[in-house]
Design a protein around this nucleic acid. Sequence first.
DNA 1: TTAAACTTTCAATTATTTTTGAAAATAAAA
DNA 2: TTTTATTTTCAAAAATAATTGAAAGTTTAA
Lengths: 164, 164
Amino acid sequence: MELSQSHQSFIHTWGTLGGNWGINKTMAQIHALLLIAPDPLDTEEIMKTLVISRGNTSMNIRALIDWGLVNKHLITGERKEYFVAKKDIWVIARLIAKQRRKLELEPVLGALKEIKTDPDAQSDKEFMERVTDIEEFAEKIDKIMEKFIASDEQWFYKMLLKLV
Amino acid sequence: MELSQSHQSFIHTWGTLGGNWGINKTMAQIHALLLIAPDPLDTEEIMKTLVISRGNTSMNIRALIDWGLVNKHLITGERKEYFVAKKDIWVIARLIAKQRRKLELEPVLGALKEIKTDPDAQSDKEFMERVTDIEEFAEKIDKIMEKFIASDEQWFYKMLLKLV
DNA sequence: TTAAACTTTCAATTATTTTTGAAAATAAAA
DNA sequence: TTTTATTTTCAAAAATAATTGAAAGTTTAA
């Protein structure tokens, strides 16, 4: 598959954004390619289009499937696997939020709670205050994300109306 | 300055979190150290406490000041500069959101708009739909961040009440 | 002025992350 | 079975990012 200029820009943009969001560049680019592909693609085609190795392609497709952003698509009579991306940006955002919450926020919350159990820390008033402030803040962000992840699109738009 | 176990954990945790948030590890660790330091610290003390080089320390303090997370603190009669971190987690969150919006979201919005002007793209119905969906979503996130950045703490708590 | 105190810069080094590609594993077909 | 098609793994290589530290730059004091 030849990529037009605008398709390339899109893949590049999505790749850069991914880099900022804990998704590696190749993973984001494969995702971008599948997002704009009208039909399911196989590994071979993804490799060739993005000019990346077989191993890299395989690993990152796997990751996309783990995150729930991409699904396998089997074509009867064909042996190899094809892949399709979920197209709804709302669904995509929720899936990404879910992973980031799990991989980043939860461990930090755990670590902060752990720190607060240290007797040394407890005797340091200022320090405890700082840790507690941050913990409470992180807890709130966690709650918002939880809500967001479990929500439907309507909730999001209602929220926007209230906010903006 | 000797760091207690809990202080070390805190600095480590904050450093890890920073890594996920576009802030480099050292920058986040210096920030963490200043967050829990009862008094302003000078470059020498930061270097020694975190066991990092002078150059690294200088560059990252500079970055923290650019982001608005840290302020210089001059002591009369002393020649060297001391540094203090803003302690209010609410203020910190807004300052970080401001940078991330500028460095990450805005360029993506720009790129998406650019892509939409390409005649090639405009004739590709599916592609335009995808790009437009993402653009509209990003626009909404941008608006929320703008609101958040300009808001006060009350706004945030009111929002939380509405949401959760 | 000059010297001392302190800060910044940046080329070179070191550490970390990503990618490759060939071999091993798996699965379907003959 | 055995062969062929396809996917996965992972050690080594390449690419990228972070860090050092010594030299250059600044600023203040003498």
